[in-house]
C-alpha cells in the first residue's frame, strides 16, 4: 500500500487559455474533443473521477 491522496484536485483540463496553473497541473487543449480524450485518459491513469465545472473546464478529483 502506497500513500494515497484523498479529496484533492489532481488535474485541470481546459480549453480556456486564460486559466493558468496555480498549484495544480493544468492541461490546455485546442478543442473540446481533445479535452474529452485527455480527461478520459487522465481519469483512468489517476484513478479519479472527472467532473465538469463548466463546458470548457474539467477537473479530476480523487475521492
Amino acid at each position: 500500500m502506497g500513500i494515497s491522496i484523498d479529496k484533492s484536485i489532481l488535474a485541470i483540463i481546459t480549453t480556456n487559455q486564460k486559466i493558468v496553473p496555480a498549484g495544480t497541473n493544468v492541461f490546455h487543449c485546442e478543442s473540446q474533443q481533445e479535452m474529452f480524450e485527455i480527461t478520459k485518459n487522465l481519469e483512468a491513469i489517476l484513478d479519479g473521477i472527472a467532473h465538469a465545472l463548466k463546458d470548457d473546464l474539467f477537473i479530476i478529483v480523487k475521492h
Binding site: 474529452f36 480527461t39 478520459k40 481519469e43 473521477i49 472527472a50 467532473h51 465538469a52 474539467f58
Partner: peptide, 20 residues
Amino acid sequence: EGAGLYVDNIYIMNIGLPER
C-alpha cells in the same frame, strides 16, 4: 442536468465526460 446526475430531483454526482 448538465453534468449533474439526478434520480428524480435528488442530486447524485457530477459526471463530466459525455462518454461516461
